[in-house]
Design a protein around this nucleic acid. Structure first.
Lengths: 342, 342
DNA sequence: GGGAAAAATGGTAGCGCTACCATGACGTTG
DNA sequence: CAACGTCATGGTAGCGCTACCATTTTTCCC
């Protein structure tokens, strides 16, 4: 006996149900949905009516299988809770919410191996585009990206050798700018405090080094780092370590704002005057920096905008007109605040 | 003329390529990959060798189409940047990273309409499970969840009427506990400050009201709320409003830790002594609360654990043994700190 | 008004995989 | 030893959609 409807599908309406109801061929329905311009006004109306009546929703899996291309953006970030990446991801989501594209988000946990695994997995879906954080992919990852057969955008940083496209800014310049600001403000024994020393943090540290050397102020004992994940409590710990090591410290450039906040709190606790005794500079400029007391100088980065821009570039590439600029530097901004106003 | 290989597929190896190479039927390869126990040791080895040699990766789209079931968890949260949801999402990702399941993450922006749209979209993929934040779905959303044909876990809150399963805690109890703590600590003119008054915030406020009424302390002028998205700067603003409205304020229960931090900073700025003049309680207990100066009393919630538990329950339901407890209350913990130590 | 191009529509044949059933090779049992 | 399971494997027929090509209809131009 022949069942009236597919045994597997669970009875949801399919494209040919719509076609039958609208009295047209299945292919026409497909076209009406994907490229309405190629179907006459009248049929389009009929089809729309049938779609509405049946509550038809296209099956993205079938679509992906038939067209060998999934309407999916693969997005790879090293952390989901770090506000910096959360903002980038939010920018990506907001830019894609009105498009037919779904998002496949992966968390690499700052691990190259994990990144390779996820890239492999994402690749098997033939995504429409890939957005990955950072520019320091392993050789394997890089090869996977090159062979992905879709636009690739590396975000957060700029560098000389994009797989395809890049949006970000120079962390080295950011680190140097922050440090130079402290120097100009009159600080001399300026420490660097950094957690989770990923490649971006390393480059901020490199920027710090450049500035300190140029000013003839460098001293390796001024640098305090740890591979541990960054947090406000950790910022406090590291600052105490730094002070113990170097009691004459009169300024700190912090790897990020969490650390800076931890430093600020410890200063309060230990009755160290900010900015008189110690100057503090953060990185990223979370919105709390401007309300902190004293407000904290920081390097404002354009995370949300990076996400939006990455999507815009990928979308352009998908629709055929690759942007002329393959590498976009969105820069950063030094926000001078009370914590360095000596 | 017949092309040697599929015109569309881009030349990636398929299941039948593996089958040919291993000298077995396609179906056997499929089984060897999905349910190795049903294939003999020897064939399994041969097949594995062929898979490795060809670099075969199964196509999830084809798999989903053929089996009418995608190996995808749909996850819906109202915000990507709010640390609370980021933690839940992290828990979900971590629990699923070793499973074959992918994650489809949607951002509802606290909008019921957006939630419906995303649920519709996610449903079209026939996900293996759905995890949604909150228990206040619109009737349409609720129906979509009920008809999703897969396990559904509502997270962040517990309530009387689960669609399927729930993991969370009582925000009302949390709000009441926080407020009672302030009362016990000797505060009397206790304000409530809340931003982004979503249903969970409303219930915390309800808990505050219960406690204040029971103590005979309630006064509507003590309550300051706004629908605006929560942030540290906003916390500062709201606190100033609250103080202007009610200068005799001697304590505040804040909707969340961002607000609490804003309040603390404003107290510093205005030289208001915490906890002597004003007591502060936050909600969620972000890790910075314990290092803040003074450290801030807060209601610790188990966000990461909620994510993990939700996945565990969904996974159990998928594999057939639904947990006995359909509603899991993970509770919360009052962390007493300096900000209320009068 | 005839011919050609363009536009609109449809049919067929898969995409890569799995559900379902069939087959054959083994025990196992009364 | 016939009858019957059980296990390992394979063949066939789709899943719901789109690429590709064929067909029909319309439009345009000299």
């Amino acid at each position: 006996m022949i069942k009236p409807r597919s045994r597997r599908g669970g009875g949801r309406p399919t494209l040919s149900d719509v076609a039958r109801k609208a009295g047209v061929g299945a292919i026409t329905v497909s076209r009406a949905l994907r490229d309405p311009a190629r179907v006459s006004e009248e049929l389009r109306r009929q089809i729309q009516a049938a779609v509405d009546e049946l509550g038809y929703v296209p099956d993205p899996n079938a679509r992906a299988l038939a067209s060998a291309r999934a309407e999916v953006f693969g997005v790879l970030v090293p952390s989901l809770t770090n506000n910096v990446f959360a903002e980038v991801v939010r920018g990506i989501y907001d830019s894609l919410s009105d498009s037919p594209f779904r998002i496949q988000l992966g968390n690499t946990h700052y691990s190259g191996l994990e990144e390779e695994r996820l890239l492999q997995l994402f690749g098997s879906q033939r995504p429409a585009a890939l957005i990955v954080a950072g520019i320091d992919q392993t050789p394997t990852s890089r090869k996977l990206l090159e062979n992905a057969g879709c636009p690739v955008v590396q975000v957060m940083e700029t560098g000389p050798d994009p797989v395809d496209m890049m949006v970000g800014f120079s962390h080295l310049d950011g680190g140097r700018t922050a440090t130079e600001h402290l120097i100009e403000a009159g600080y001399r024994r300026i420490g660097f405090i950094g957690a989770r020393m990923d490649p971006r943090s390393q480059r901020r540290l490199a920027g710090y080094r450049v500035a300190m050397e140029k000013a003839g102020l460098s001293d390796p004992r001024l640098i305090t780092t740890t591979p541990v994940l960054s947090s406000v409590p950790l910022g406090r710990e590291l600052f105490r370590d730094a002070l113990a090591k170097m009691p004459t410290l009169d300024g700190v450039f912090c790897n990020n704002d969490d650390i800076a906040l931890g430093v600020l709190f410890e200063c309060h606790r230990a009755s160290i005057d900010v900015p008189k005794t110690i100057g503090i500079v953060g990185f990223n400029d979370l919105d709390m920096m401007q309300v902190a007391f004293p407000s904290i100088t920081s390097i404002r980065t354009h995370r949300y905008e990076i996400g939006r821009r990455a999507v815009a570039m990928a979308l352009a590439a998908i629709s055929g007109d690759r942007p002329r600029e393959r590498v976009v530097d969105l820069g950063f901004e030094l926000k001078r605040r009370e914590s360095t106003a000596r």
